[in-house]
Structure formats: C-alpha cells, structure tokens
C-alpha cells in the first residue's frame, strides 16, 4: 500500500473524515492548554513585564506562516510532477490559512513591539521578510482566483510558488543585507529579545506551537475537502448538462 493511494480524492476524503475529529480535538486541547498556561500560569518577565506573554500567539503563528508556504511548495511540486489533484487543491487550501497566520504574526508583533521598542513597526529584517511573505501569499491567492480553468490555475500557481520561493529566499538575504547596511550595527533589540526563554516560558510555548501545527493541519484537511467537493460537484454538473 502506497502513500500515493490517498492522492485519489475519494480515498483522501474518507481518510481525512476519519482523522479530522481527533485532529480537531488534539489541536483544540494543545492550543487552549498552551495559551491558558502561557497567559495565566507563567510569571511576568523581569524585563518585559506581562507583554512577553504575546509570545504564545506570535511565535507559533510565525512558525506556521513559513511552514504553510513550505507545504504549498512541496504540494506544488507533487502536482507538477505527478499531477495529483488533491495535492494542487491542498496547496490552494493552505494559502488562506498561511496568509492568516502571517497577518497574526505581523499584528501580534506590532502589538508586542509597541511597548518594547516604542514603535509599532520597524524595518527590521525579520519583520520586513514577513511583510514580503504576506505579499507573496497575496499574489498566489489572487492568481488562483483569476484563472477560470482549475487545472491551468493549478499549473500556473504551482510555477508561481516555485519561482516565488526562490525569490522569497533571495529577498530574505537581500533584506538582511539591506538593513545592516542602513543601520551599521543596529541597536534595536530584535524579536530575539524574548528568546532567552527559561523552562517556565518554554513548555507552554512548545505546546502552543504543536497546537498551531495541528490546527493548521486540521484546517488544511477541512478546506481541501471543501475544494474537492466543489470540483466533484462541478464535474457532476458538467456531466449532467451534457447528457441532458
């Protein structure tokens, strides 16, 4: 039995229907435990006060924002090479989740940055990279929406995802280079400020990260299922029109 069997939409729907309840439950437990523990059961940081607690939202969201793109990249490659529809639709389904995670990371970062750095936004390499990632997500989703034929849309967005990944990496290094060049040894304490994490902060953070990962997985499975059903409905509609 090969993993590729689940590239068949019907089999995929069956498996994902069986897995999803557990996945949702596990995700909910991890997110709730991680956040509640993080918000209420950890001490305030001696330097950052209670603001540090936004880390339990910020870091997992940022992590998933990048991993979602990575997942889309792998799914796009699978579509281009093996032409499994589920793969293309999974990439399509992951994009809105990824962009939401990016926005959460950016917004929580701004809320965290305001009391810490005295500014909502700084053109720090890390922040700027996320802004660029946001733009890439935006373009990817817009291209999916703009192309009528679903297979052509899958082809085009897959290539865009590949090319975009290369340019996203290039941008990351360009941005690092650019800001050093501007500030000549910056004095702004960067998002690593809260990363001197001791165990008290670390365990809830890990639980929260796992929770966000599971949540992402559940959301993508759910959304992929919706996309598959949409395609199925369209396929059936096309057949019934032809017979009539």
């Amino acid at each position: 039995m090969s993993l590729w069997e689940y590239a068949n939409p019907v089999k995929f729907l069956g498996l994902s229907a069986r897995v999803q309840p557990y996945l949702w439950a596990a995700a909910a437990i991890c997110v709730v435990v991680g956040l509640v523990w993080g918000f209420f059961a950890t001490p305030d940081d001696f330097r950052q006060g209670s603001t540090v607690k936004i880390i339990y939202l910020h870091v997992p969201a940022a992590l998933m924002a990048i991993n979602a793109w990575f997942m889309m990249l792998v799914a796009s490659l699978i579509w281009l090479i093996r032409r499994h529809h589920v793969s293309a639709l999974a990439a399509k389904a992951a994009a809105p989740v990824g962009i939401t995670m990016t926005v959460i990371a950016l917004v929580t970062g701004a809320i965290w940055g305001q009391p810490m750095w005295g500014t909502w936004w700084a053109w720090d390499p890390r922040l700027t990279s996320f802004l660029i990632l946001f733009l890439f997500y935006l373009g990817y989703i817009a291209l999916w929406e703009a192309v009528d034929d679903p297979d052509t849309a899958a082809d085009l967005t897959s290539v865009l995802c590949l090319v975009g990944s290369v340019f996203a990496v290039l941008s990351r290094y360009a941005v690092k280079f650019w800001n050093q060049g501007l500030h000549q040894g910056t004095s702004v304490p960067v998002a690593t400020g809260g990363r001197t994490v001791s165990d008290v902060f670390f365990y809830p953070l890990v639980i929260s990260m796992v929770g966000f990962g599971l949540l992402f997985l559940a959301l993508v499975l759910y959304r992929t299922g919706t996309e598959i059903r949409l395609r199925r409905a369209r396929a059936l509609l096309a057949r019934s029109k032809k017979e009539a």
Binding site: G139, A142, A174
Partner: peptide, 29 residues
C-alpha cells in the same frame, strides 16, 4: 502568467512587485 486573463494588468503588478524586491534592494543600496 497573466496573458490569458482579462484585465490581468493589475494582477500582474501584484505578482511581479514582490519578485522585484531583491533587485530593488541591491540596486538602490
């Protein structure tokens, strides 16, 4: 990417501008 899309001009800007980032950064720098 956008040649077959009606009124693809705006979409093309959205797709191309992020790809221009590295070039712009190094050039302007």
């Amino acid at each position: 990417l956008t040649v077959g899309i009606k009124r693809g001009g705006l979409l093309m800007s959205l797709l191309v501008l992020p790809l221009y980032v590295p070039t712009l950064i190094f050039g302007a720098e």
